[in-house]
Design a binder for these strands. Structure first.
Length: 257
DNA sequence: ATGGCACGCATGGCGTGA
């Protein structure tokens, strides 16, 4: 089973990229973040032509998640359900081929002194409670998406310069790790303990890709028994090289079921 | 030290991203 994740940075802008990648890579599941499209404007028809089933929840301008699968997904849920803002455009959960898949677009946090950063840290805590409520670490579960955290120094270029960055700050990394510690394994890091491989390169530095000044902030995690069955993890850098690219690229993992 | 790019939109500037 091949599961992929991609921060698309506007699905409507990136529709040809997504359609082409599905055709070329034939994943069983593709999780998208930052679709930036409300549900009434979602390009459902174009995606239906691929044969993939699509579930999605978006809003105007910002955020938005979608999950594409070759088979019909079950037990579809959006957002957190703890009575606070559910943030439905940031989380979708479904069961596909007997595996629960959670696709998240974690809040960025903006700046360390911003209320948005508090919200980000809190979001990770809420997510761990959500895992407790709905899932078991003993079951096969995949959690993937744009986590907006580079977990270790190797996961960002010039880490010493980014200690005060909301995606590398100690509290953000700890919040991420606390939630991972619920029972998830980062399958990229499991297969490649030392490899530096980014998934995001900033638009603001036109040479960031050639200079390989990026971040590994998109992740695929699995519960332990499923992680044991992970046979392959790759970052496909080619879509990031193409003109009119998202600032992220595709990450995918294969599991022997 | 600062600005740089991309996207969406009550679209000519701003909020947001990371």
């Amino acid at each position: 089973m091949k599961i992929a994740t991609y921060n698309v940075n506007s699905l409507r802008k990136r529709l040809p990229v997504v359609l082409g990648w599905l055709e070329q890579q034939q994943p069983d599941v593709l999780c998208l973040q930052e679709t930036k499209v409300q549900d009434t404007e979602f390009p459902a028809l174009a995606l239906a032509s691929t044969g993939y089933h699509t579930i999605f929840r978006g809003m105007k301008s910002y955020n938005g998640v979608a999950m594409l699968s070759r088979v019909i997904p079950d037990e579809i849920c959006f957002g957190l359900d703890d009575g606070q803002d559910p943030d439905e455009a940031r989380l979708v959960r479904a069961v596909i081929n007997g595996i629960t898949i959670i696709n998240t677009y974690i809040p960025n946090g903006f700046k360390l002194d911003s209320p948005k950063y508090v919200y980000k840290l809190e979001w990770y805590k809420r997510l761990r409670v959500y895992f407790d409520k709905h899932l078991s670490p003993d079951r096969p579960v995949v959690w993937c998406g744009d986590m907006n955290v580079a977990p270790e120094p190797v996961d960002v270029h010039s880490p010493e310069k980014h200690l005060q960055h909301v995606c590398f700050h100690e509290l953000a990394r700890n919040a991420y790790k606390e939630t991972v510690a619920w029972g998830f394994v980062d399958v990229f890091r499991k297969l490649y303990p030392d490899r530096q491989q980014f998934t995001f390169w900033d638009y603001l530095r036109p040479n960031s890709l050639d200079a390989n000044k990026g971040w590994r902030i998109d992740h695929i995690l699995a519960t332990a028994s499923l992680a044991e069955r992970c046979t392959k993890v790759e970052v496909d850098i080619e879509p990031r090289r193409a003109a009119g690219s998202s600032d992220h690229t595709f990450l995918w993992a294969e599991f022997a079921l």
